[in-house]
Design a binder for these strands. Sequence first.
DNA 1: GAATCACGCATTTTT
DNA 2: TGCGTGATTC
Length: 676
Amino acid sequence: MSSRISHEIHRLNPRQKEAVLYTEGPLLVLAGAGSGKTKVITMRVAHLIDKGVSSDEVLAVTFTNKAAREMRERVSSMLKGKIDSLPVISTFHSLCMRILRKEIEHIGYRKDFTIYDTSDQLSLVRNLMSDVKVLDKSVKVESVMERISWAKNGMNASKDIEDSETDDVGALSRSLYSRYQEAMKAFNAVDFDDLLLLTLKLFREHPEVLERYVDRFRYIMVDEYQDTNSIQYQFIRMLAGERMNLCVVGDDDQSIYGWRGADIGNILSFEKDFAGAKVVRLEQNYRSFGYILKAANGVIKNNSKRMGKSLWTERGLGPKIKLSPCADKESEAQQVAERISIIRYEKKRKFDDFAIIYRANLLSRPFEEALRKERIPYTVIGGTSYFERKEIKDLAAYLKVIANPADDLSLLKISNTPRRGLGATTLEKLANFAREEGISLFDAFKRAGELENINEKLAFKVLEFAALLENLMAPFKCKGKMTGAIKELIREIGYKDYLFEVYKTVEVAARKIENVESFTESLSQYELEEPESTLQGFLEAMALTDMEESKEDESYGVTLISLHSSKGLEFPVVFLVGMEDGILPHKKSIFTEGGLDEERRLCYVGITRAMEELYISHTDFRSKYGKDEPSTPSRFIDEIPDEVLERENDSQLADPDDSDKKAKAFFANIHAMLGD
DNA sequence: GAATCACGCATTTTT
DNA sequence: TGCGTGATTC
């Protein structure tokens, strides 16, 4: 046994050590916020391998790429030089993808399937809706898609979509459900839900396949177990087999994704589900001062359905939590901004040490304005921007067609982008022809000459376009030729000219072109890094991974972030803002089953992000959608023990001493901005 | 095909 | 209130 790893294990606290050393049979590690969870997981993997388990036999599953990447890095540095291959550490989705790539033919799909992301799904549903001539504009495509996905995941009370759902969305979703599935299959495409669902189907219908995986993965670990949904639960359950060397790590108190299908019941009934399970509680917190933990404990103990856990620390109490009532959201924002200036100046902190955390992204606005006014640099996390760049989606659609000519949807999308005179009517005719002949749209393109209702000139254009795509297929199949091929593609279709044409200002067009370049760049990088590079592999990486690895070091300044995205992060100074009833707890959650408990957990997550100082604020009046409404402090504030709180006055009037401080701090911000 | 207008909508988000 | 979408119009 390696002395270095055993030395590291000896330095763990008793509970952590217990979790690391208990390797056989089901184990639930209840890891409180800041209790050294990642350390335990990685150490456990290292320990398993160190004691002789082959790294091939170990599987660790996470939810996000970021978590997987982090874990992979830590495991590999811990085992440096000891092993030649890392264990499989991957997200649910990429794990299933890997399994399906090998085995999907067992259930009647083709191996070269394409992955559809949310926006692909959305445009498919949009197309289906226009096929059946839905004129009712009150039905949103998003709602229909959501309902279909919900049904697929079996999260309706019973299977499929209930007949009793008589509302428009329900009825429409029901009638489109099978069309959706058929279209996906015809396109040789698979959506995010399918990755898991089809793997489950595969395992159910082909026990011999399942057996191979059960036999291979002898030690399984699942991170963030409280976030698993019922499909993921079943998947894990099957993989764990009879052996049940399954270690799940999570925190029921941080289950905040119930609204998208996560089932907190999975973690709560782990002991029942996996007979003989051992439970280890990690309650010693290494992140926060005592008062912060007391506040967190005070709030969360009001939830009834939980495993029960109470955080403690050896770090001492630290400063009390400051509670500030503010007149309105503008003064709340201003107060926070001024406070950040002063604290940074007086305590020699960096702007990176601060975070402003809120329930809903739209609350960030006033804070951004106040910070700008105060000359404080900041980064807003969240919003949905990365996946939505039109030019990237365009090029990706080209690649999808080249990789999978059966993908009618993507072909449709690129047929007239850039414009080549293939309008809606022509495409409609081609689509009809394809349907009649039972062929793909691409094959229909290649036979455009046979259509009598399309004139010769137009048919020639279609044929030309099909030939263009077809000619590109070969270079994309050659190893190491993809970067050249994409440049060729961009040139051939005149994409850059098209961008200049479409976007009026030079700046916007230039930005778009920059994105195009970076897309090319990422393909070339993929090709360089990946010895077994294929176009399919690249598209997969695009769909399944964030591809934004470099953005982390760009972020600088105060972090503005939603409660949900703050999970897993920590900051020396945290401002929990907008702590009002109707916001946290959110008004829509108050009357839904289990909604209030989840809001409380959200509050718990927020509090436990703070390492040293925590400020909680709320307003007397809040203008929403134009109207001024009186607001009440969040009911969760009442659950914080009084002795940990320091209540501040409502008065915004600063004493002279204070304004002096403010001025000094302000000028210090300007200096900081100038870079000294 | 672009500009303009009116309307509706307004938690949370990853793969 | 403020934004994004879809329809309308030139």
